[in-house]
């Protein structure tokens, strides 16, 4: 702040409070709706304050779900989402850190080509090659499986670049010292590189967990068996099914549950989240 202007400060507060309210509005409305019964919406006026049916609605959704929509209980869908998000986040970190290690610490023929192959994945998001990718996964018999949900999304140019950047800034003396002490490349990787990149891995994990949890199009395509539905993809099926019937309170309860884990991660690990966000864009 350069000079003290109480008027400007008050205006800044006003802007921010307004921003917080507008940004928070959807969450509030969804939460309020999830604590009422279906009949509360019929009167025509929307409730703006929470009702008394919170526990009832949430336990109904978590344990049984809406049977008419063909979706399993929400607890099951959340478990599927958790498995998918963890597999994607850990898988991406694991294969990217070894790739970056190979590219930075070794010289071998076609090294440049390998680097470019990984780089190209940046330009091929699932959305632009849906049909052929689906055909490959179907051909491999991976439909309706956790492998099908996660493995095709695991390749990561961003994560590889991030670790490459981290390794490039590490002093050369580390390798020399390890060499003199008789450590081979894998020992160097395990005992020196991995511990030194721990914070980067944690920051990246936060971003990738959110990325994995929020996948929508891919789970929608590869799961037809309701036992493998993820919550983000399942909620749409639920909303479609109840569109005729006024069951919005249950859909909103599911929406709140779908937001809870990733939002908790962002708020609980804000510092790591911001670090990850900034680093993955470099």
């Amino acid at each position: 702040m350069i000079e003290n202007r109480p008027g400007l400060n008050a205006m800044a507060h006003l802007v921010l409070i307004l921003g917080v309210v507008v940004v928070g509005l959807p969450l509030w409305v969804a939460f309020v709706a999830s604590t009422h019964t279906a009949t509360d919406f019929m009167s025509g006026t929307v409730p703006m304050w929470p009702g008394p049916h919170l526990v009832e609605n949430y336990s109904l959704m978590l344990e049984r779900g809406v049977s008419t929509s063909g979706t399993p209980p929400v607890a099951r869908m959340m478990l599927n989402s958790l498995i998918m998000a963890l597999l994607i986040a850990c898988g991406k970190i694991a294969i990217s850190i070894t790739s970056a290690f190979a590219i930075v610490y070794f010289r071998f023929p076609l090294r440049g080509l390998a680097f470019w192959c990984i780089f190209v994945t940046l330009m091929l998001p699932v959305e632009v090659r849906i049909v052929p990718t689906f055909q490959v996964v179907a051909g491999l018999g991976l439909l309706n499986s956790y492998a099908g949900l996660s493995v095709p999304l695991i390749a990561s140019a961003t994560a590889t670049f991030l670790f490459r950047q981290v390794f490039l800034t590490m002093p050369d003396e580390l390798v020399e010292a390890a060499r003199i002490d008789g450590a081979g490349p894998m020992k160097f990787f395990r005992d020196i590189l991995l511990p030194l990149s721990r914070t980067n891995m944690a920051a990246l994990f936060v971003i990738l967990f959110i990325y994995g949890w929020n996948q929508y199009l891919w789970p929608l395509l590869v799961t037809t068996d309701s036992q493998y539905y993820t919550i983000v993809a399942g909620i749409k099926r639920m909303a479609d099914a109840v569109d005729g019937l006024p069951q919005w309170h249950l859909v909103m309860a599911t929406a709140v549950l779908a937001m809870l884990p990733p939002v908790a991660v962002v708020i609980g690990m804000q510092r790591l989240f911001v670090k990850g966000l900034v680093e993955t864009e470099k």
């Binding site: 917080v20 940004v23 409305v29 929020n214 996948q215 909620i235 779908a258 990733p262």
Partner: peptide
């Protein structure tokens, strides 16, 4: 202000649709 980053696009759609 930063938490909506963690909301899936599909869920954001459902919220505003409602």
């Amino acid at each position: 202000l930063v938490w909506p980053y963690a909301v899936a696009p599909a869920v954001a759609g459902i919220l505003w649709w409602f």
